[in-house]
Structures are given as C-alpha cells and as structure tokens.
Design a protein around this nucleic acid. Structure first.
Lengths: 217, 217
DNA sequence: GTTAGTTTTAAACGCATGTTTTAAACAAAA
DNA sequence: TTTTGTTTAAAACATGCGTTTAAAACTAAC
C-alpha cells in the first residue's frame, strides 16, 4: 500500500468538497484532515484543479458505466407498450439506482456530483459543462434519448426545459441532503437516508415529467 | 443624487453575485465595474458581508411583502372547494408572480435569491438559514401553510420533503437560468425569458406536488 | 470665506491561499 | 553497501483578498 497517501487525499477532499464546495475548501484543510503534507497534493495531482478532477473522475466513471449498463439492459428487455407512467418511473429509477450505486463506494460523492452540476450550470460560458459532456456525456445522452420516448407529445425545446426542471429536483435534493436529513431528524425524529431520498424523488420526477404543457411556446 | 455611489455598488454587486456567487466575486471587481473606489464598500456597508446583506435585503423585502399581500388577498377570496389541482396552481402561481415582481426592479435578483437559498441549504449547521427565516420567514411560512392545505393526505414529514423537491425545481431553474436561456437560444433559436420560465414551472411544480407517495415512510 | 462634516481617494496592511523549492527520508535494485 | 529513483517534509514564495488608514476633495451651513 505504497500510495495510501493518494487515497487519503481523495477521501478527505471528497468529504470537504461535499460539505463546503470546491473554492471554499483549502488544500491546507484537506491535507491536514488527510494527515498528509501540504505539498502532496501538488506532487500527486499537479494542482488543486487536478485534485478536483481526480475526485470527480473517481465516481463519474463508475456512475456513467453503471448507468449505461442498466440502460442498455433496460432497452433490450423493452416492453414495447411504453408511453405509460410505469415505464417512465422505471427509467427514472435506473438513474436513481446508479446514483445509489456510486454512493455506496464513496459516501460523499453524490453531494460532490450535485455541486459539480450546479457549478456547471451557473457559469453561462460553460467550460465545465463542455468538459463534462465531452468526457461523460454519452451515458447521460443515452438516458435522455430513452426519456424522450416517454414524452413524445413535447417539442425538443419543451423537452429540454422539462428535463432540466427534473434535474433541479435531483440536484437540489442531493446538494441539500445533509441539511435536509439533519432538519428531518431534529424536527420529525425520523431517521431517513440519502438512499430513501433517491427512491422518494422517482415518482415526483415522473409526475413532473408528465405535467401538462401550458406555457406560450 | 449624493449617494449614487451606493446604488452603483449595489447594482454591480448584484450582477456579479448572480453570475459568479458571493465568495468568487471580489470587492475589487465590484468596485471597478461600479466605477467606484475600493474603500467605498467598507465605508458604506461596513464589510463584504454587509454588502451581501444589503444586496439581498433590497429584493427580499419587496419579495416577501408582495408574497404576503398576494397570499392574504388569495385567502380572503378563497373558494372553499379547494383540494383540486386548479387551486394548487393558483397558489404556486402567486409565488411565481412574486418572483417576477422583484425581477422587474432588480434584474439579477432572482439568480442571487437562488444562490442564497442554495448556500443556506448546503451548510448543515444553517446559520444563514436561521437568519433568513428569522428575518423573512413569515411570508414563506404563510405560503407553506396554504400549500399544506392542498396536500392534506400527506404527513407533515412527507410534506416537508415534497416541499423541498418543489423548491429544487425553482432554485435550480433560477440559478441556471442564464445558462439555460443561452443554450436554448443557441440550440433552438428560441427567445425565451426568465418570466416565461416562471410560468413554465408552475404546472410542473403542481404535478410534482401531487405525485403519489410510495416511499417506505 | 471659513468651518465642520461627509465622501472619495490612494496607499498600505495583514492574512490566507495555491504553488514551488530544496533537502531529507525512504525504497528497491545493483 | 551503494546507488538510483520516488515520496515526504519544511519552508518560503507570489498573489489576491478584505480591510484599514490618513490625507485629499467635496458639500453645505454659518
């Protein structure tokens, strides 16, 4: 176990990034929590940006692979009578299950994932967005393609917007999960978990997906 | 117009905060965009934190006042045969309209609002959350109370989660609006606006609110 | 016109950050 | 044991930040 240093850094960085975001966590807090010298980050990852990329790559790889595998299995055993709510929920449940899957390995990865999506969509020039879609876009495009089939009455543009409204449910739930779970436990003495949130939002996203279109498109 | 300095700072700060967040925008970029001396911020607002508070107070005041006024007017002329989807949409449309209202005055206020909510829910200790609910919580609690009536079949805890899923749609749409509108124009040659997004999400949030409960609560 | 109070300006301060450097410690092969 | 390459260590570096200071400029009342 020569390079436990690398893993300790990755774990500490993931935890800190998930709790305080990328810019607001310093390399000094990461290296001190990892019990590692400050210079180790630049030595092993080149820069802070390199560390962020390593942290995200660690779960984005498994996430997209798992998602892709599940989607192709789903598509093969496809009951041709789709277009009903059941099938839509199955598809959304696949996404949820992929998220759960990566969370088993790296506990804070989903919160980091949510922060990643949020920052990608909050810079309008979209450098990060391009990088993500170039590196990991295939699986998510695959997902969108299948989702699109269940919302045939919409135009492409309407689907674009609806999809991102659904994404909002997912991203906000993930990035706020720690706070929400804490409030929930304090306020309702209920011991829920991120896993349960992921099954929770599936029917909610499904209903949101099927809401009627009334705007002046 | 002796203190146009203050307004120029507030406008520049609002624009920068909406585009790059609170921590990632420096006082130097704000003051240079406002064509104002660097020290002016500390002179007029005491600190950067004071400036952030001034920026948010400027629209949170009008927002909550408008929301409260609309809600009490709605409650007075209340068709007692509620519990149907129409009424739910009316209520959600009130929230949307209040958002539109403050956006007319300060163009980037809604994106700042979204960032405020996001940061409030991404720190689990919740200092900002407490401050916001102490200062502006009344109107939003009022809104939640009325919304609760339209979702009577849920437990309080289930309502808590569902409410925050709806909040996710709103917050993500607002904080990503600039990027999404840019993509939409480039990809679909469609000239949409934040206003249209706000009417868009009303039926989506309504459907999400009425999704069946299936989780193991 | 002088004065008193307010606002603006330029410069500096103290501090935290990411990064680099240089040497020491270590590991494994010759 | 010596040597070679890799990893760790402590210290310093450069930079950008929020903030403070002290003097200048301005405003308005007397």
């Amino acid at each position: 176990m020569t390079s436990s240093t690398i893993d300790r850094i990755l774990d500490a960085a993931e935890a800190e990034f998930s709790a305080h975001g990328f810019v607001e966590t310093s390399l000094r807090t990461i290296t001190s929590k990892a019990k590692v010298n400050l210079a180790a980050v630049n030595y092993h990852f080149g820069s802070k940006k390199g560390l962020i990329q390593a942290v995200t790559d660690r779960f984005l790889g498994p996430l997209t692979q798992n998602l892709h595998a599940q989607l192709s299995a789903y598509e093969k055993s496809f009951s041709k009578s789709h277009n009903d709510e059941q099938e839509l929920q199955v598809l959304l449940a696949i996404l949820a299950r992929s998220c759960q899957h990566v969370a088993q390995q790296n506990h804070h990865s989903l919160a980091v994932f949510a922060r990643l999506i949020s920052t990608a969509y909050s810079q309008s020039q979209g450098h990060l967005r391009k990088h993500l879609s170039y590196q990991y876009g295939a699986s998510f495009l695959y997902f969108m393609k299948l989702l699109r089939k269940h919302m045939p009455e919409m135009t492409d543009e309407q689907f674009f917007w609806r999809f991102h409204y659904l994404l909002g449910i997912l991203v906000f739930s993930l990035s706020s999960s720690e706070a929400l779970l804490a409030i929930c436990e304090r306020e309702y003495a209920s011991n829920r978990s991120l896993d349960q949130i992921m099954v929770d939002i599936v029917p909610v996203m499904a209903s949101a997906a099927q809401a009627p279109i009334i705007g002046e498109f």
